[in-house]
């Protein structure tokens, strides 16, 4: 890097002066700089992944395998979680609607809550736990056992084979998982309503979808693509950048879940703000 010589002559007194920093300050500064470096590394990782995604050779086989692993294998967990979400939300919302004499609005209220916010976020958080940690641990162990280095040596692009396929798989599978969870959630809500009363599924669905508009559905689906991308990217990044020791596998998995969950919430906040602004 070329150094530019200052035009103004610096006073010798200042040049010779030293700044005394405490150990704590130095430690904090190092931590801050390492955090910023970490952020930069993550951004650079994202850019590289993005670049590799549109490269010529695409690992379709690995991509479909990851879709199966991430999507299909998550279905039981998502089904149970979704149904319980709908059930609990309905039971909890019922008393306040009874106070206002608006129990008939319960299905539509639950449907809107599930589709707009709760379904995508809860599903994304569960996926962050299950998929994010899985990717982080898998790639971390590969890193620890130097499999990734071996791939690089054998002229196989580990980014393209390991990272791009996983990130794309999570990006595409998560919206489907969210829709699936929404469906189970609405079913759970119907079950909850039938615990207290007797409502046919036809009447329930007409009440549930009566107030639901396409504008409620579209932003919710769009943001789930970002949630999926975040989970895939964070998991892959944490695994890919894991340390050399065996304990780094656990650290990678753990930090992947934490960071993915945090980023999902931040992305959701931004998405909600944008949605609110546009509509």
């Amino acid at each position: 890097m070329r150094r530019i010589k200052p035009v103004i002559k610096v006073i010798p007194v200042i040049r010779s002066a030293t700044i005394n920093l405490s150990e704590k300050t130095i430690d904090k500064t190092i931590k801050a700089s390492s955090f910023l470096e970490e952020v930069a590394n993550f951004i650079l990782f994202i850019l590289r992944t993005f670049k590799e995604t549109f490269s010529r050779k695409f690992e379709f086989r690995e991509f479909f395998r990851q879709c199966f692993q991430i999507g299909y294998k998550s279905l039981p967990l998502i089904s149970i979680t979704g149904a319980i979400m709908g059930l609990v939300l309905t039971i909890q919302s019922r008393p306040i609607l009874v106070t206002f004499g608006a129990v008939t609005l319960l299905p539509s209220m639950v449907a809107i809550s599930l589709i707009r916010e709760i379904g995508p976020v809860i599903t994304a958080l569960i996926c962050a736990g299950k998929i994010g940690s899985g990717i982080g641990a898998e790639l971390g162990s590969m890193k620890v056992t130097e499999q990734i280095d071996a791939m690089e040596v054998s002229s196989t692009n580990p980014m393209r084979f390991l990272v791009v396929t996983r990130v794309l798989a999570t990006t595409l599978m998560l919206p489907l998982l969210v829709l699936y969870a929404d469906a189970w959630g609405i079913l759970g809500s119907w079950i909850a309503i039938n615990i207290k009363g007797d409502v046919s599924f036809v009447l329930f669905s007409s009440q549930a979808f009566g107030y639901l508009k396409f504008i409620d559905f579209l932003p919710a689906v769009v943001k789930t693509f970002f949630f999926g991308a975040v989970i895939g990217l964070v998991g892959s990044y944490k695994g890919y950048t894991a340390g050399r020791g065996t304990e780094s596998v656990g650290i990678a998995a753990n930090s992947a879940v934490v960071l993915a969950s945090l980023l999902v919430i931040i992305v959701d906040m931004i998405a909600v703000q944008i949605t609110d602004m546009l509509i």
Partner: peptide, 22 residues
Amino acid sequence: PHFKIRLGLFVIGGIALLLIAL
């Protein structure tokens, strides 16, 4: 490392600005 720090600052600052703007 300097580039990375600047990039990190830019990203964090950018996200903060985005949130404030939103």
